[in-house]
Design a protein around this nucleic acid. Sequence first.
DNA 1: CTGCATCCTGGGCGATACTG
DNA 2: CAGTATCGCCCAGGATGCAG
Lengths: 133, 133
Amino acid sequence: MENKIENIPCERQDHASCDKHIAAVHDTMDVLHGKWKITIISLLGFGKRRYSEILKEVKGISGKMLSRELKDMEMNLLVKRTVISEQPISVVYELTDYCIELLPVINSLAAWGTRHRQCIVEQFKQERQDIPA
Amino acid sequence: MENKIENIPCERQDHASCDKHIAAVHDTMDVLHGKWKITIISLLGFGKRRYSEILKEVKGISGKMLSRELKDMEMNLLVKRTVISEQPISVVYELTDYCIELLPVINSLAAWGTRHRQCIVEQFKQERQDIPA
DNA sequence: CTGCATCCTGGGCGATACTG
DNA sequence: CAGTATCGCCCAGGATGCAG
């Protein structure tokens, strides 16, 4: 029951560094918090978009939430906002280079999620044939 | 404003794969949902722990939440629960090999979080000397 | 010690209507 | 078209107490 490190593919060795690690994770999660930000980032990873386009393409999001999230993300330097002064006015959002560094992270989340879904499906099948009668 | 992919270090090319990508991310986030799971995983990445040890080491968590989260994680095959029939009874939790695959993902979250914190600090300093008078 | 039931509060988020 | 204001629901999660 000791603090033997085994099979752990990372380099956390003591309580202090463990706490720092956790704090760092929370820094990221704070930035990504809420129901929508990751989706928005994924979408914008696809290319710059206007407000109304995002509204359409992110299924289910309301206008209030979208502007709130975008404002938030702009403050966190994740997104660049550009006003196009035409008729009528339009606003374009795009990922900052900084935020683009998040994409690989999000990709790794996606990769694990894909495997996880398969695993759950397997498990389900398994259970169904364990109790067949 | 087209769907030009540029500077994007990942391979999402069309709407269908983009949607799948997003769904996969949500699969992962569902598993990690709530205020505590990532922290618990990080801690257990450190070595197996008893219930009461986790309760002490994860600052701020309540008993209710801890058992709820652990049960949840057990169902998702993230954690292995072992009852030690001694006096008094104790229960040991440890990461499954499956969950250990999540550690690199969490590490990448931490890595970005560390950089982000530095970036925010820089930005703050910047602003303070932009409006010094 | 481990873990569940109950009660309760805050705030995340949706719906709608309104302004520039 | 972009964004704000108001209202209110709902549920994650905190506190406490009980059970095995």
